[in-house]
Amino acid sequence: MDAKRYELNVQLAQMLKGGVIMDVTNVEQAKIAEEAGAVAVMALERVPADIRRDGGVARMSDPAMIAQIKQAVSIPVMAKARIGHFVEAQILEALKIDYIDESEVLTPADEECHIDKTRFAIPFVCGARNLGEALRRIAEGAAMIRTKGEAGTGNVVEAVRHMRTMNREIRQLAAMPVEEVTGFAKANGMPYELALKVKTLDRLPVVNFAAGGIATPADAALMMQLGCDGIFVGSGIFKSADPARRARAIVKATAYFNDPARVLEASMDLGEAMPGLEIASIPEEQRLAGRGW
């Protein structure tokens, strides 16, 4: 990917700011998401909550299903490839979708290497738990970052932890004298040049969305107030009692995240949210955020 292409890919993510990207598993859900005001859909076979429940190996979705969704909506279509599975990514690029999520929600294909995203023209978004992880993915060519959170739990606590961690590390970098950056970058596994760039910008050089556990309008507004640029909702919509209504409510709360009266209005009468999971109840080896590094 040349520099100009990378710039265009970062810029598409910029145009998604303040919006909600929704997980969908078929054409009908994609249309509900678009109608509700989603800025993009993430096409996948099973939402994270089902992947978590069913176990087994989760892979890239059937390209035929993704193609149908692409046909059915005018908003950007994203799809997930397994961490390190560059051939799944090649297939998704050949399918000409708009963005690939190299995602820990699917079973990793490579425990050592992530995809070399610089070899692609198509943009990638990657998950991160802290600034070092975000900058390593950007060094590999990611044009957009999201928190990992803990997908499929309906529990926002991990997304909050990851966002607060990134914010804290950015503040630390911004405040330190430049000669301390080398040591800080080394200790936190950050590519030095990118650490320096974050110090200058006082934020990530690409768009950073919240993902993993967002289930309510209040969760979305919380992540926006913590400084995220936008929201991914996975299981939170189509595992709830009234998906269309909840989808619209989360879009409203994301747009008006700083206006409690509007978030209140969006939170009324939504029916049951998705069932939630306490993080401590999930055995370590079943936690998705630990996949990738």
């Binding site: 145009m15 998604l16 700011k17 303040g18 919006g19 909600v20 678009e34 109608e35 509700a36 005001g37 989603a38 800025v39 993009a40 005018s74 908003i75 950007p76 619209r248 879009v251 409203k252 747009a255």
Partner: peptide, 14 residues
């Protein structure tokens, strides 16, 4: 501004 017109149109109407 640039963005997703379906999203912005929906919020404008609401």
């Amino acid at each position: 501004p640039g963005g997703e017109s379906t999203c912005i149109a929906r919020l404008l109407a609401i």
